[in-house]
Design a protein around this nucleic acid. Structure first.
Lengths: 141, 141
DNA sequence: CGTTGACTTCGAGTCGACTTGAACTCCTAG
DNA sequence: CTAGGAGTTCAAGTCGACTCGAAGTCAACG
């Protein structure tokens, strides 16, 4: 059956792979961001499965794209409850996907504004007319 | 000479145009995000020039793209000091531009990860095999 | 003249997500 | 045997950027 030899990882190893400080990994666990329990060795130290380490990596992406911890928690709760609520999980993911897409669009809009200003400076500096940037206009704001 | 009939705007009008709450506009002023002084009428109320209103709009873009208030402040200080430091202003803008470009790239990377998961759910739900998502794999994480 | 509603100042509170610290245990190498 | 380094728990602190509330002023309208 599915009796695999699992590679178990220490918190330090997971930290290295994910880039998350060990403190943060413990914090995430405490906040309920892992569906299953994290095992411990005889000495009480955490042992992560590959799946859990992978999930931690996914979490970094969810977080860096702005998903709040409570929403990740909500998703994880659904996973923990087992099959039957896939539609709901899907809704969370799809909604977040759209939020991120909007974020990208907004950021690109801001980037355009910034780039415009960069270009103004670039040209003025090249032409040696930078001093005029401030001549009664909002140009250099 | 440049004696224009200036249109001056109340804080409420600027708030409407920028989407920033009046509280925030006052806060920004206090944090030194405006190069020139904001005028007041006889009753002590703020009167913004069109240029200042425009700058406030630009600020929303700088902020939404993650430029910290202290850095906007730094830029504004340079503007306030007048001509001669254009290179330095340019450096701030160019650096921020690059930061935003990196942000966009990171966000798109996160988006790809999320989209992958969305697709997995989409397919499983369409095929009616959603229940199997959790079968000893990290698929549904 | 009274009341609305936009404005003023000042200071304190909120929020999310860590981050830090203290005090402790345990395994391993020298 | 002991020193180092990684791990543990729990509580408290930090950070940036607002956000809110209180208490008061002012102009215009009916």
């Amino acid at each position: 059956m599915t009796t695999e030899t699992e590679t178990l990882l220490s918190i330090g190893e997971v930290s290295e792979r994910t880039g998350l400080p060990t403190h943060t990994l413990r914090f995430y666990e405490q906040e309920g961001l892992f569906a299953g329990p994290i095992r411990r060795n005889a000495a009480g130290r955490r042992l992560y499965t590959e799946e859990q380490a992978h999930w931690a990596r996914v979490c970094t992406k969810l977080r860096s794209s702005g998903m709040p911890l409570p929403e990740i928690h909500r998703y994880v709760d659904l996973v923990r409850q087992g099959p039957g609520n896939e539609e709901e999980r899907f809704a969370i993911l799809r909604e977040h996907e759209q939020k991120v897409a909007r974020q990208v669009a907004d950021l690109q809009e801001a980037l355009a504004v910034i780039h415009t200003k960069v270009e103004i400076y670039e040209e003025a500096l090249a032409a040696g007319t930078a001093g005029e940037l401030w001549r009664d206009g909002p140009i250099c704001d």
